[in-house]
């Protein structure tokens, strides 16, 4: 097969995964939140409401594509693309198993984080281009928040990367094979527990999930930066948000929970063959926890949010990075 065709097919597979994820995750969010609120959630479209998101996609596709007259034409049109494309790019370095991967990037983790850091530019463009005060407030909040939480996110990623000695996601997963002391799986979450907590908090903020959903702030800003968007342009932003959730959860699984490895059976060929399913299961469990947090905690204030990142999370993650580097050198794990 020609390399070009192969690359095209891999990209298509990533797009398919993204779209399916979007559809599944939106239903999952509704069902999980409903469960936490003692409600039923969607039940009407299809059995158990499974076709609800499909119906929503058709609704979004057939809606009028509206642009406010005062909006900046090019920024307004470009913003959904700029929000969506990086979140799609972040899929490419992910590895579902040793053989199931979209690309084999030696700087995979860095690539995911770099792609993620492009998102606030798109959100800021959407906020500015919409020429509306709520949108602008949402855009500015998103930019401030995502810049603040990118730093602890990257620092928390450093621990597993140092342990594995590689930025390649497959190498990081393979470094988590085996057990410590005969029973404990060699997952990096144990030595990097603090790092994982920082990663979880920063990841929740990077994906604008509820304790940190300043940019959307349903009750104050009426979906913030996406306020003036309708139809599929809004759909793209919405989809990007859910695909970011998947990316953060998948990254967390890769870095801290042994990726596609089944604990105690990580050399078993059957377990390795089931790798992609195991990886998806772990990732969806991670997403379920993110939704659980989302359904529990109220939104923090903007100043609390920024102060928590700059004054607590960044110093702690810096100290933790230095400490884990020293311990790693001393113990030679």
């Amino acid at each position: 097969m020609s390399p070009l065709l192969q690359a095209l097919l891999r990209t298509l597979a990533a797009v398919a995964l993204l779209l399916v994820n979007g559809v599944v995750l939106i239903l999952m969010l509704r069902k999980v939140l409903a469960r936490l609120h003692l409600r039923l959630g969607p039940t009407r479209v299809g059995p158990w409401g499974v076709l609800q998101t499909v119906a929503d996609v058709f609704k979004l596709l057939t809606k009028e594509d509206f642009r406010p007259s005062g909006a900046d034409k090019w920024l307004f049109r470009l913003a959904p693309v700029l929000v969506f494309v990086p979140s799609f790019m972040a899929y490419l370095p992910l590895a579902l198993s040793d053989t199931w991967r979209f690309s084999d990037l030696d700087t995979g983790v860095l690539f995911v984080l770099a792609a993620g850091s492009l998102v606030p530019i798109g959100i800021l463009m959407a906020g500015w281009g919409s020429n509306a005060k709520w949108s602008l407030l949402g855009g500015l909040r998103a930019a401030g928040q995502q810049i603040a939480y990118e730093i602890p996110l990257m620092l928390s990623v450093l621990g597993p990367v140092m342990f594995a000695g590689s930025l390649n996601v497959a190498a990081i997963v393979n470094a988590q094979r085996g057990v410590w002391l005969g029973v404990i799986p060699r997952w990096f979450v144990l030595p990097q527990l603090v790092g994982f907590v920082i990663f979880a908090i920063a990841g929740q903020a990077e994906t604008s999930q509820t304790p940190f959903d300043m940019s959307e702030a349903e009750s104050e800003l009426i979906t913030g930066f996406a306020n003036e968007y309708s139809g599929m342009r809004f759909g793209f932003m919405f989809l990007a948000e859910f695909s970011n959730m998947f990316v953060v959860s998948a990254l967390g699984v890769t870095l801290f929970f042994g990726g596609w490895l089944v604990p105690w059976a990580d050399r078993n060929p059957l377990a390795l063959a089931l790798g992609p399913a195991v990886f998806m299961l772990k990732t969806y469990l991670g997403i379920a926890v993110m939704m659980w947090v989302r359904g529990t905690l109220p939104r923090v204030r903007v100043d609390q949010l920024l102060a928590f990142s700059w004054k607590t999370l960044i110093p702690v993650s810096l100290a933790w990075t230095v400490l884990s580097a020293l311990v790693m050198r001393a113990v030679n794990l």
Partner: peptide
């Protein structure tokens, strides 16, 4: 407090819905 809140919502999730398909 966060952990307590999480426990409360998890208990709720275990209770199951109290609403019906009207």
């Amino acid at each position: 407090g966060i952990l307590k809140g999480m426990a409360v919502t998890m208990r709720n999730a275990m209770r199951g819905p109290i609403t019906v398909r009207y």
